[in-house]
Design a protein around this nucleic acid. Structure first.
Lengths: 343, 343
DNA sequence: CGCTAACATGTTAGCGCTACCATTCTTGTA
DNA sequence: TACAAGAATGGTAGCGCTAACATGTTAGCG
């Protein structure tokens, strides 16, 4: 009895077929079966086919968890963004995903809800999954998170804005973009200009654009005006922004919105109210979302190429992972002023 | 020398601190350190604190890959959607993510690009990651994929539409929704109605709505008209749809678009052309995106609660994972007709 | 004071795979 | 013919963690 008992220890594990079973069926060792999947060149073609047939036959699904543990690397790329509600991040994610998936990497998506503590938490989790690289939206992290990111021996890519990056960096200069739009408004002859942002403490890139806007106005000898909404950018919030500008800044002739959602919301609201744009009020945005180009008048905005940003970022990371030397660790994707009829 | 050599076999693994190191520092065994993280109640409070301090001190990051292998379960939920370009899926993902992340699960996101072979591939990969559950958009899979999904001993949730599901199912009846909108148009007195879809072979839910639309028209003794665009839904495509309807169906008085992107694109294009909506042409959509409610006239559409769909789906899955008995394996989230001024 | 139950902690043995090194078998070359 | 170089395959030992079982330790009870 006791002898039996000693052997009775329950087996764990799923009932899934394993590589060892495949190997046995194919009459090879498990390492050869492993190679047939991961390094096919190193296995004789006939043997390989026998192994693949065996896999097919017993319905083998590779246990990637075991593989990652053994090889100390996964084919995960961690992607951390502050929000999924914002089309901008979605487009960056699309660019990343298309490129990474094509290279056989899987995206691990994390959403911080604009909370850098949450970001730190997510980074820890993702590192725990032995992700091959990390992509974060933005350069602002908690000190502990910076330390984690700097200390992990994997490529770290920071996208969206340019600056003092930890490793790789693809983005655009938001201050410059804000300044560009402000100069455009000045050039069009507007003097009473209000900048409208939404939760700029969280969306600090909007605050960076405001800084550029402000600098441009001050350079022209004008006082900047700021209105901040206590809600995230949306069409609805844009409508509210327009209303509040009319109350608080009755002389305003132009509104520079922090993004296209706000700007388009305001534009549609103005049309709904029967206001003439840009005669009564000029409206400008940022992002270059398709929506703004389909309304009449078309929205004046700044086009940022988010899909390209994602693609470039992914390509850089892949280059690093392939061991290639990456010369330009910082890439500026730039932006374009789209002059619509709304200004 | 040879003795040395025997021991020289290179160690693999990262230089990351391990649980064993934490345990040694805290003066406990590694299983106790493991419990301090995964089952804190079972460890004495003072001991636990000592362990947590040790982790903090040496910067321990749990290796989740190893943990998953040992326990044969990960805290991943696989989510497979056909597209990230469509706001609808994004909103479902948001609902899923908020709920799953709050419960400590991580989303593994896959994008099939409307290719069910790709879906099969992704499902295999995700199963290989020992995901705790799978969520797929839709009920259509390759036979092999169905088999995989049916055979894995994990909760499988199919969202978006209702029907013959493998396991759990949360969605709405698209045929009924299409029929509802068609009846609305008939009730408003429109007789010459065209349904405009975009790539309905891929977006088969749009085809289901057309089936409902068609049935309603035929029930009223009217012939259905269909125009299919060879591109995915977008504002741009909607504008094209309007143009093509005017060419091919000059008598059309109402257009029932497969979704709000198309409908809003058409609506904005009509306004741009100076057409009066709904007097010259009535326009209806599907989804209830915010955009449609901010244009003038407001878009008549069908509101589907995508965030709720995601949340409900996640809650059901979590209930299953917690071992609770789930009574309603199929949940209908329904829809609401939003009567705007565009019809 | 002995006994039980509940708590706290430890020992052991893998989870399924791949890195490392070793071995066998070809093939080409001097 | 001997030998080097390469191709194909295998044996072994973990990767870092946790399930299962085992043991020690304390409190409560009659």
């Amino acid at each position: 009895m006791s002898k039996r008992k000693a052997n009775t220890r329950q087996r764990r594990g799923s009932a899934q077929p394993t590589l060892a079973q495949v190997a046995e069926l194919a009459g090879v060792s498990s390492i050869t079966a492993s190679r047939a999947l991961n390094d096919p060149e190193r296995v004789n073609a006939a043997t390989r086919q026998r192994i693949l047939d065996a896999m097919e036959r017993i319905g083998y699904v590779p246990n990637l968890v075991a593989g990652s543990l053994a090889s100390a690397r996964s084919r995960f790329i961690a992607v951390v963004v502050p929000s999924l509600a914002n089309a901008v991040f979605i487009e960056v994610i699309q660019g990343l995903q298309a490129t990474f998936e094509a290279a056989g990497y899987q995206i691990l998506l994390g959403n911080t809800d604009y909370d850098i503590e949450r970001e730190h938490q997510l980074v820890r989790t993702f590192l725990g999954w032995s992700c091959s690289a990390l992509v974060t939206a933005g350069l602002r992290h908690t000190p502990a998170c910076r330390e984690l990111l700097a200390g992990c021996d994997r490529p770290v890519m920071e996208v969206m804005e340019l600056g003092e990056a930890l490793d790789l960096n693809v983005g655009l200069d938001h201050e410059e973009a804000g300044s560009c739009m402000a100069r455009h408004l000045l050039q069009r002859g507007y003097r009473d200009i209000v900048y409208v942002g939404a939760r700029m403490g969280e969306d600090y890139r909007a605050a960076m654009r405001y800084a550029g806007h402000r600098a441009a106005l001050e350079a022209a000898g004008l006082a900047p005006h700021l209105l901040e909404l206590d809600r995230l950018g949306s069409l609805e919030a844009g409508a509210e922004g327009l209303e509040r500008v009319r109350e608080q800044f009755p002389d305003a002739k132009a509104i520079h919105f922090a993004n296209d959602d706000l700007a388009t919301g305001a534009l549609l609201h103005a049309l709904r109210l029967g206001m003439r744009v840009p005669e009564e009020i000029a409206i400008a945005g940022f992002n270059g979302l398709p929506l703004g180009q389909h309304v009449t008048p078309r929205l004046t905005t700044i086009q940022s190429s988010r899909h390209t940003m994602g693609r470039l970022a992914a390509e850089q990371v892949l280059r690093c992972l392939a061991g290639e030397e990456v010369e330009a660790r910082r890439q500026d994707v730039g932006f374009t002023l789209l002059e619509g009829e709304s200004t």
